[in-house]
């Protein structure tokens, strides 16, 4: 095999954790593991990838790669695939990664497994497990090709205790400004001190039982104590208590943190689809019959307005 490539997800030099997760995971298949990073001023990041298992780091620096853009990134990747012939190229299943993977796959007339929650790679073949119907069922799919292409869901692979030589390789720049067909006018980061919902170790979500902004404030208070992301069920999003980007469920985000706390969420099937793969689930709900208790490891049948303040002070002890 000629290597597993992990495309580095970064913005302004900030590397997303999923990159490290994929590097560690790729190491399991015995093949050489390479991080592939495009950008401006990104060579300094190379030792970071070695720490997580990269045997090689392909660094491509040019103004045209300063920010992710589909045209130039695809053109560069196609040229590098033709030159170095990797066995597999994996992307993070993110806003940019799935765009990159899909467009590249079509350009190369190849299959692609998106949003995989497990992967097994061998020569010329990848077996990917995908959550379908937002996790209500699983499909194992086979992608054959040169290279095998897939996008991996953040948070499903463990960052391992592995390292690599991290030898830097600098392929020729194969894209020009003429390849760029989108103009990014602005990127405004969500102003939040909290971690990103799909990457957080702990998620605290509020639902209809929060009854309004006051209940959500309690959810946020608990989240901040735990360094958690805040999420919500459809009821709290539709009521305008939380922004849509925080919706957990079938038409929102699928999360799989170490701990998911559902406060005042009954557990409609669409919501369960988005969070039931979390490692630990705690539920606070006044309705003892609420379906959320069927998936929770620790459920308390009580009023969140009374439980959360005590929980916060007990945790602080």
């Amino acid at each position: 095999m000629a290597g597993t490539w992990i495309f580095v997800e970064q913005r302004d030099g900030n590397i997303r954790k999923v990159t490290y997760e994929m590097l560690s995971e790729a190491k399991k298949f015995g093949d050489e593991v390479a991080a592939v990073v495009f950008g401006k001023g990104v060579e300094a990041l190379a030792p970071e990838f070695a720490k997580y298992g990269a045997d090689k780091v392909y660094v491509v620096e040019d103004d045209v790669f300063a920010n992710y853009n589909t045209g130039a990134y695809v053109a560069q990747m196609v040229a590098m695939i033709n030159e170095f012939k990797p066995n597999a190229v994996l992307f993070a299943h993110t806003f940019n990664g799935r765009d990159f993977g899909s467009r590249l796959a079509q350009k190369l007339q190849l299959g692609l497994a998106t949003d995989a929650i497990a992967v097994e790679l061998s020569a010329g073949k990848g077996l990917f497990t995908r959550a379908i119907y937002a996790g209500k069922a699983l499909a194992k799919v086979e992608v054959a090709g040169e290279p095998v292409l897939g996008t991996i869901r953040p948070g499903v692979c463990e960052v391992g205790d592995v390292s690599g030589a991290g030898a830097v390789v600098k392929p020729a720049v194969a894209a020009t400004a003429a390849d760029v067909y989108q103009t990014v006018k602005s990127f405004v980061p969500t102003v939040s001190a909290r971690p990103e919902l799909t990457e957080a170790d702990v998620v605290v979500s509020g639902g209809r039982g929060c009854k309004g902004p006051d209940g959500i404030k309690l959810v946020e208070q608990l989240a901040d104590l735990l360094g958690a992301a805040v999420g919500g069920s459809r009821a709290s999003i539709d009521s305008g208590w939380l922004g849509h980007e925080l919706q957990v469920g079938q038409t929102g985000k699928v999360v799989n943190p170490n701990l998911y706390v559902a406060a005042g969420i009954s557990g409609a099937i669409q919501h369960l689809a988005g969070m039931s793969s979390s490692k630990f689930i705690a539920a606070i709900n006044t309705d003892t019959e609420a379906p959320i208790f069927n998936v929770s490891d620790f459920g308390v049948v009580a009023d969140l307005f009374k439980v959360i303040p005590t929980l916060v002070s007990e945790l602080k002890k």
Binding site: G111, L127, L138, A139, K140, E142, V143, A144
Partner: peptide, 8 residues
């Protein structure tokens, strides 16, 4: 291009 191996 993609073959479904199994559902579970």
């Amino acid at each position: 291009k993609v073959k479904i191996v199994e559902f579970s």
